[in-house]
Write a protein that binds this DNA or RNA. Structure first.
Length: 193
DNA sequence: GTGAGGATCGTCT
DNA sequence: GACGATCCTCACA
């Protein structure tokens, strides 16, 4: 296994448009009941601050989106449509809102646990395991109550992003998905399969 | 294989 | 009181 480096806070203290493509190929890992569930990041979307109508931060600071306005490198977990969770990480220095939404992972460690959490067999296709924001959180066992506000840059955290040195061969940029506002902006980044 | 519609609730107005 | 940064099922072709 190659060496893994925890991404420092400075990594996130940049514009989401820069951080998002940089996150592709990194390892997202979550410690659940003592077991590390890990996946390689395949797809992300950048959400800018006040100027991005699609961003939760565009309506101004509220109790719900406060994390986006805080320091960089913090997990922002929110529930959507009453039945799904989505995982983001805050970007830009303290006080400036912005973030990156994780949309898809390639499962690497803890695949059996992920399949169990998703109520699927271990033989299920990776895309079904963690392809899609809601699936991703379900597969890793992430809930808002437990994980919103967790610092991703601490070695003691249960939720981290690691760099094992691997870089995607090619990155594709497309408009964002599943939103109505500003859906035409090319802020979705994915690893070309 | 593809597209329409239902599920379901925290959060903000 | 209305509405999502979604996912899944079920028709129908």
């Amino acid at each position: 296994m190659s060496r893994r480096r925890l991404l420092p806070r400075e990594f996130y203290a940049r514009s989401p448009e820069i951080v998002a493509p940089d996150l592709l190929g990194k390892l997202l890992t979550h410690r659940r009941r003592g077991e590390w569930l890990t996946g390689r990041i395949l797809e992300v979307e950048a959400y800018l601050g006040l100027t991005d109508p699609a961003s939760h931060a565009s309506i101004g600071r509220t109790a719900r989106n406060a994390v986006l306005f805080g320091p960089p490198g913090i997990a922002y977990v929110y529930s959507i449509y009453g039945m799904h969770y989505c995982l983001n990480v805050s970007c830009l220095p303290d006080g400036e809102p912005g973030g990156v939404l994780f949309r898809a992972l390639a499962p690497i460690e803890g695949i059996e646990s992920m399949a169990r959490l998703r109520h699927l067999s271990v033989e299920a296709k990776p895309r079904l395991l963690a392809g899609g924001p809601g699936r991703l959180c379900q597969a890793l066992g992430i809930s808002r109550k437990e994980r919103n506000g967790v610092d991703l840059t601490l070695a003691s955290s249960d939720l981290q992003i690691l760099d094992d040195g691997k870089v995607p061969k090619a990155i594709q940029v497309t408009p964002r998905i599943g939103i109505r506002k500003a859906a035409d902006r090319p802020l979705r980044f994915l690893v070309v399969d």
